[in-house]
Design a binder for these strands. Structure first.
Lengths: 342, 342
DNA sequence: CGCCAATTTGGTAGCGCTACCATCTCCTAC
DNA sequence: GTAGGAGATGGTAGCGCTACCAAATTGGCG
């Protein structure tokens, strides 16, 4: 007669408690919760009453263990504070809040190694889907993604050869469009200023270069980059460097809006007329760009929508209805504003 | 002779595989991984070799189920895109990245109901600790926190009566300090502009009011608020409203830096001299405030550090070394800049 | 009226791990 | 020489849930 060992779980009600109270088998409770249409209405009602009365909440860990599938979306982004990724993440959260899926969010700090580590960790949870930023995974990461056994969505960019699905846009085209706009507006000595030169920034730079070369205006001295994390203050400093290097500079395509804002502020401070003396184009089109004085031309990207679409595609794949379009290009819009209106 | 049912788990190695390969019991492998000092060095080495060879990664779900404790920190914030919370979250992530703990992040959208729902959900996972933003939980949420059976840290604010532990600062004092600074600088018709009037904003407003009343300057018409989510463009609009209402306005304390930036831009646009005609003070001191032209006075808050401290306190409590100081006030700093230097 | 299929319900056997207790060795103390 | 304790290792029995299969019930049809 071994004494019934105290319940380790701390006394929260289990599915067995609900089953007992409702006078049914445990498996029926499980079904009533997951596939209500397969249980008669009467039992469903009884079970719901028992659930409410006991305050039963299923244990996701037990569920994941028994079904070999956790109701978790793994999400990997390079930064939590960069507004761009924060918006994508918000789109993901909003799309998933009404679903049973939880989110496991990882911050790679722009490190391939960290990405591998997190992918390994996430994989051990058997997630229902994985959403990762970027398309330049290391070979090891790519292998992990391919063998994850769940839908995978690469976001922020489009490119050939997706692991599974993709939602984003072409950063190269964005960079080109921004630069062409400056050239069309009459700017000639157009610089590129970019911090945190991640793969997406590299492609924007490539777009800039393509446009400049096509116009016969490219000059390597016009390009100013740094691997340092982007910020408004960095934008200001880099602009000063760029101007010192090329005093005839008359326009800048900034890798992102933070940099552009730093440039704008420095122009104010140094009494450089915008858009007359210098034209400025940013990237991403944060809310503040249209409010700035002068308002700043920027490439509007659809970050929130990228998050939503990624979830929608993953959900469809989970439901077995894999979208026929595996690569979704959400594009971008050039927002022409005062900073380039000369 | 029932055929051995195919492994549901999809063939990833389990602790039993490692044990077999290392020639030890499963429980010894478990111990070697969790409490290496309790296993002889020789076995430890053998086990590590087997783990590496098989690429074994423990299943966190099984672990959580067996130990009735998930290695998860539940984190609840009202917004993912607000830079202030993003910084706190980043501090939490950075502090936890080297630990075995995962993070479950929830977005309450400033809704008490949503907070309750998420708390309920998180509770079902038996988290190792909970970190929640704010101190104004609904009674139901507070009950959930109190019965969570794990350390709880309320962040962003300090106040009496913590559920368990607290890290933050006094928003009332911050609001008062900002307003007193404007008054000392000689501004008299000082307005308050605040969007998204959450409890913290309310307390900043209370600080503003206290300072204005102490100086005999308070006038309800100086206060402009809205429940709408804060943004730079909203800041611009609200400032125009405020100015229309009180044309003699000569200073503004903005509920946050986004609003302050909107005010600054509108001043540029309307050729209102800053700091001569209007003084501006923000709140939080985002990087861009010191770069802006003119640079903007703001209340610097230690968001990242709040995240780090919250984790440190929770970790200490988990380890049984509950910090003797349950309420940590990290304070704030008034950064005097050009926008109030007249 | 019996047979088969469809529908609803339940029992059993794990999922992969760890809590708990038992065992075994080795060492110290008297 | 033996008791007692500390340290290392292992076995057993679940944790709470669901996959799989079996059984019971219902209904349609020849």
């Amino acid at each position: 007669m071994t004494k019934p060992r105290t319940r380790r779980g701390g006394g929260r009600p289990t599915i067995a408690d609900v089953a007992r109270k409702a006078g049914v088998g445990a498996i029926t409770v499980s079904r009533a919760l997951r596939e209500p249409e397969r249980v008669s209405e009467e039992l469903r009602r009884q079970i719901q009453a028992a659930v409410d009365e006991l305050g039963y909440v299923p244990d996701p860990n037990a569920r994941a263990l028994a079904s070999a599938r956790a109701e978790v979306f793994g999400v990997l982004v390079p930064s939590l504070t960069n507004n761009v990724f924060a918006e994508v993440v918000r789109g993901i959260y909003d799309s998933l809040s009404a679903s049973p899926f939880r989110i496991q969010l990882g911050n790679t700090h722009y490190s391939g190694l960290e990405e591998e580590r997190l992918l390994q960790l996430f994989g051990s949870q058997r997630p229902a889907a994985l959403i990762v930023a970027g398309i330049d995974q290391t070979p090891a990461s790519r292998k992990l993604l391919e063998s994850a056994g769940c839908p995978v969505v690469q976001v922020m960019e489009t490119g050939p050869d997706p692991v599974d699905m993709m939602v984003g846009f072409s950063h190269l085209d964005g960079g080109r469009a921004a630069t062409e706009h400056l050239i069309e507006a009459g700017y000639r000595r157009v610089g590129f200023i970019g911090a945190r030169m991640d793969p997406r920034s590299q492609r924007r730079l490539a777009g800039y270069r393509a446009a400049m070369e096509a116009a016969g205006l490219f000059d390597p001295r016009l390009v100013t980059t740094t691997p340092v994390l982007s910020s408004v203050s960095l934008g200001r400093e880099m602009f000063r460097d760029a101007l010192a290097k090329v005093p005839t500079l008359d326009g800048v395509f900034c890798n992102n809006d933070d940099i552009a804002l730093g440039v704008l502020f420095e122009c104010h401070r140094a009494s450089i007329a915008v858009p007359k003396t210098i034209g400025i184009v940013g990237f991403n089109d944060l809310d503040m760009m249209q409010v700035a004085f002068p308002s700043v031309t920027s490439i509007r990207t659809h970050r929130y929508e990228i998050g939503r679409r990624a979830v929608a595609m993953a959900l469809a794949a989970i439901a077995g209805k894999r979208p026929e379009q595996r690569i979704v290009d959400l594009g971008f819009e050039l927002k022409r504003r005062e900073s380039t209106a000369r």
